[in-house]
Design a protein around this nucleic acid. Structure first.
Lengths: 125, 125
DNA sequence: CCAGAAATTAGGTCATTGCCTAATTATCTA
DNA sequence: TAGATAATTAGGCAATGACCTAATTTCTGG
């Protein structure tokens, strides 16, 4: 398993990947893109159509999200489909919260269970 | 209860507070400060001493974190003590993850329980 | 009151980000 | 192959952010 692709699993919250993730999330349009993709995969054009912003700008946002490992792209003919990389966001943020927030530490085992459950889901899905 | 002070409780992940939180978290030094404060409260000077950075720069970072509602300041004589606002970080990130990450949605009730438990903890103190 | 320490504010520089338009690449179809 | 559509890359510009030094505020102790 590639370390960066599935960041958040065991990687400490001080790793290199987490920086890109938080930078990616610091932008409202990018968070909005993630929200859209949480409902269904979309082409770059479909995403751009939902914004009052030029296509190249959206393309840049998509690139930032992809480099952060939060979304995946797949070319299909002349279209490029984007989809959420589901584990990464939750795991990265979860890992960080566990490092920083004392309250959250007790649920460390739960998040572990969550990751396991997700693994199962993927395998069955 | 002030809405912004305890952001993340019911506030949608599209609110104004979340933007400040994510911007605050986009900086490695600021995340490091949060990690320090998760172990104990510290004065501005004690925090600055842990960084290879000027005190004014640290002061600015502290201000960003405070405006985001992630830390609290308390003046004691000539010192200023900073401490973590524990609920806010976990709740804000949790709320966002629930909005975006399909896997995480089923644990919505758990996070609610977590918030409740935290309330109790605070009250018993 | 004055010297000194803690912390912030003020002001300036430099790099980065976010947006745009124009140009380019890749693909489909007639 | 030519023309149209999807998407990206290239390049430029304004705004923002992160750092610094110097100056200021706020408190303590002699």
């Amino acid at each position: 398993m590639s370390k960066e692709a599935q960041a958040g699993g065991d990687e400490p919250a001080t790793g290199a990947g987490i920086q890109r993730v938080f930078e990616a999330l610091a932008s409202a349009p990018r968070r909005r893109i993630l929200a859209y993709l949480s409902h269904s995969s979309l082409t770059a054009g479909e995403i751009a159509a939902r914004f009052d912003m030029s296509k190249p700008s959206i393309s840049q946002h998509l690139n930032v999200l992809e480099v952060a490992g939060l979304i995946a792209r797949e070319r299909k003919g002349q279209f490029v489909h984007y989809s959420l990389v589901e584990n990464n966001l939750a795991n990265t943020l979860n890992g960080f919260v566990q490092d920083v927030c004392p309250v959250a530490r007790p649920i460390k085992r739960e998040s572990k269970a969550l990751a396991a459950a997700k693994g199962r889901e993927k395998a069955e899905g």
